[in-house]
Design a binder for these strands. Structure first.
Length: 429
RNA sequence: GUGGGUGUAGCUCAGCUGGUAGAGCGUCCGGUUGUGGUCCGGGAUGUCGCGGGUUCAAGUCCCGUCACUCACCCCA
């Protein structure tokens, strides 16, 4: 901070790892959110909105101390009242907190909610990874039924399909539960102990051994060929649950592949775990994922209650659409564009196009007193179907020239009939 | 946190072995009186990321720094 007025201040820019969304891309982004939200609503999920920041303890307990997300990626700060708050790094913990806080679990179960909003993680940015990213997610809490797992996965897939995405894959696994995971974990730790790993990986193996399974490095994967994998060591209940989920996904016509090495970065997952991977996204290929979290509600101080949900990455979904050449915001911004010649004509058009907007038409007009040519050019660029030209001559005659920009056809329409005419003309093909 | 690549007009980029900057697109104006999309003519906009250094001279070389980008780690 300098007070020297002769020193030029540096241009401000969006913080590292964040970006601005501008038209038309922003429209495509909004469309992704809408599409995912629609899929959730069609399955009976209600909208929930929770704060973007929460008590830091919520994430420590919910997401898990051993995760990278909590241990080194949180935006944590102290407010003026001395409270430790954290910008939410993921969406589930806050929703579950709200479910518990408002006693929703004492009502009809499962509690089904969907949400959207930004998450924040202090990470090194790269393709498809930002410090602020938006997710749309759903949570179904209070019932441990494999049919619900299948529904959640199916809703995720419905949204993705509705976007038009094709080059992706749904990967599925089961991570077991409190009954079977400890024994498996011991088995895995013993196996990892016998491997030749670097210090960092060895440390990770100690804190969260499952995480080592999806290490991308060749030299690590090579040694993992014979590693014991979670789905092969499930207890009877988990195995039955997993089988049921697969069977119902098949009934739902949701294609999936079993990926026994799939692991997720959040500690709360139990049993069903899945990830949506897009084949043209680069290193950050996972654009959505989720699973069951039967211990989470209790972990953050609620009653023992099961839950299942997913989070879909909106930013990465948009990237995936772009990679597949899917245009999510086709068409024009407006239907009608006003071309006024002179101030009197402009105020008349302001009034008439305002009325047209209220009648449901999308209208814009040439502001700033540009000439005829420039105004027509603006009309053309807007993508409007009709240009309404109004000059002194027309005003005296009490009519406007309505030109269909695609065909060049132009008709004179009485000013009193303009809105009705535009409405009628807009519905004809 | 670690490593590679890149930073020149609003955008995409060119500037060879150092001599004080260009193209295309976009934008604006015009091609006579009130009509766009094509075409033609013209105009505007650059702290060459920033700060040091070497040199008579640096966009061009060196150092540092910041940012962007891709990858690892990890994750949506």
């Amino acid at each position: 901070m300098t007070d020297d007025p002769t020193e030029r201040s540096p241009r401000l820019q969006a913080p590292k790892g964040t970006y601005d969304l501008l038209p038309p891309r922003s429209e495509a982004f909004a469309h992704v959110v809408d599409t995912y939200a629609d899929a959730a609503r069609r399955a009976g999920y209600g909208y929930v909105s929770t704060p973007m920041f929460e008590d830091t303890a919520l994430f420590r307990r919910g997401v898990g101390e051993s995760t990278d997300v909590v241990s080194k990626e949180m935006y944590t700060f102290e407010d003026r009242g001395g409270r430790s708050l954290t910008l939410r790094p993921e969406g589930t913990a806050g929703v579950i907190r709200a479910v518990v806080e408002h006693n929703l679990l004492s009502g009809q179960l499962p509690v089904k909610l969907w949400y959207t909003g930004p998450n924040f993680r202090y990470e090194q940015p790269q393709s498809g990874r930002y410090r602020q990213h938006v997710q749309v997610g759903i949570e179904a809490v209070g019932v441990d039924d494999p049919a619900l797992d299948a529904e959640v996965i199916s809703v995720a897939d419905d949204g993705v399909r509705a976007l038009g995405l094709r080059d992706y894959e749904l990967r599925l696994t089961s991570l077991g539960c409190d009954a079977c995971r400890p024994a498996y974990r011991a088995l895995l730790v013993a196996f990892l102990d016998g491997l030749d790993l670097d210090d960092a990986t060895r440390a990770r193996a100690r804190i969260n051994p499952l995480r080592v399974l999806d290490d991308k490095r060749e030299q690590v994967q090579a040694q993992l060929a014979d590693a014991p994998l979670p789905p092969d060591h499930l207890c009877a209940e988990c195995a039955a649950h997993f089988t049921a989920v697969q069977s119902m996904l098949t009934d739902l016509v949701v294609p999936f592949t079993i990926d026994k090495r799939l692991v997720r970065g959040l500690d709360y997952y139990t049993r069903t775990t899945f990830e949506l991977v897009h084949h043209r996204l680069g290193a950050q290929a996972s654009f959505g994922g989720g699973g069951r979290y039967n211990g989470l509600v209790e972990a953050i101080g609620g009653p023992a209650a099961p839950g299942v949900g997913y989070g879909m990455g909106v930013d990465r979904s948009l990237l995936a659409c772009e990679a597949e050449g899917i245009d999510l915001a086709p068409g024009s911004r407006v239907d009608v564009f006003g071309v006024p010649l002179g101030e009197a004509a402009k105020s008349t058009l302001v009034r008439l196009l305002g009325a047209a907007r209220r009648a449901g038409l999308r209208c814009d007009l040439a502001y700033g007193g540009r000439g005829m040519k420039g105004a027509m050019k603006a009309a053309d660029r807007s993508g409007a179907r009709f240009a309404v030209v109004l000059g002194e001559r027309d005003l005296e005659a009490g009519e406007a020239q309505v030109k269909e920009l695609g065909t060049g056809e132009q008709v004179a329409v009485p000013l009193d009939d303009l809105v009705a005419h535009l409405l009628a003309a807009s519905v004809t093909p």
